[in-house]
Amino acid sequence: MADYKIGPGYVHGYEVSPKDKNNTKRAYKDLGVTFCGIPMKNPIVAASGTFGNGPEYADYLDLSHEVGAISIKGLTPKGRPGNAGTRVAETPSGMLNCIGLENPGAEAFVETVLPTLASYDVPLFANVSAGTVDEFGYMAETLSVPGIAAIEVNISCPNVKNEGLAFGVDAKVAAQVAAEVRKRTTLPVIMKLSPNVTNIVEIAKAVVDAGADALSLINTLLGMAIDIRTKRPILGNLYGGLSGPAIKPVALRMVHQVARAVDVPIIGMGGIMTGTDAVEFMMAGADIVSVGTATVVDPRAIGRIAEEMHEYCEKEKIEHVSDITDTLQV
């Protein structure tokens, strides 16, 4: 394909074809990291809800070498069919989604899905949601099984005992969830913070004080899209979560603020499409990063971004990718 005219934005090496098993990439030495005691081949987590359960991408990426970790599609105590109607909408440099946590339920996942992931040498984070603080505890307990490396707690979901207000918007409630999950598992507890708050630093501090081992930020920003022709919202659920490059500046700012305020490792995410984006998040204070919407656009995104991070390290003579964390000069 060398004779093809390559348009702007194309990254050399991107034309790697999936399914060609001889394209198997080696993990880069300078990208290997340890996060909460979990060894990872690179600092990129496949974000929950954008990577299926993982095997969907086995033809596009070498899951055992090109992906740092996989955060499983959000699980709930009982299986959920997800929302009816239109679930995704494209917006300027972003996308809205209201999937509605479609999943088989925690127990069914452990019994039927988890065994299918055993053949891949990649850490799995169980991303969990629940309707009450106690249910979060149940989730942590149920998912604390061999094969799961950490529990990532989604506190952007509605609290059924508090008029459906998200757990993550109230520092006290968020801390209760963190404490309950911490009590009921020995695995690392990663709290995934909602950006739909007035003061994310306050929430971050509260959950760390309650025992969170790490933070993941940011989740999607609540948004909406309208079709003026039909005079109706595009999403079946009216509102949805905005992700993609559109939210990157907000995410970077929040990662930077939180990294200054807490002492636990941070997974930075929000619109990372390239290695440059990932490096920015690490400079802002993230220890590792997570890639979601980029995978929706390009199933090979995580492998490509890892490669670009490696190229950056080589070019800048950075011995190890972790050395980038917190190097922002203000």
């Binding site: 954008t50 969907e56 679930r87 995704v88 199933p299």
Partner: peptide, 28 residues
């Protein structure tokens, strides 16, 4: 021809209701 996110089964954006009560992915 549902609206689609990834096309590769990862995002569950293109779900359709099956008559058997299951949800199917239009893309896969």
């Amino acid at each position: 021809e549902n609206r689609m996110g990834c096309g590769t089964g990862g995002c569950l954006g293109c779900a359709v209701d099956g008559q058997d009560g299951r949800r199917y992915k239009v893309c896969m």
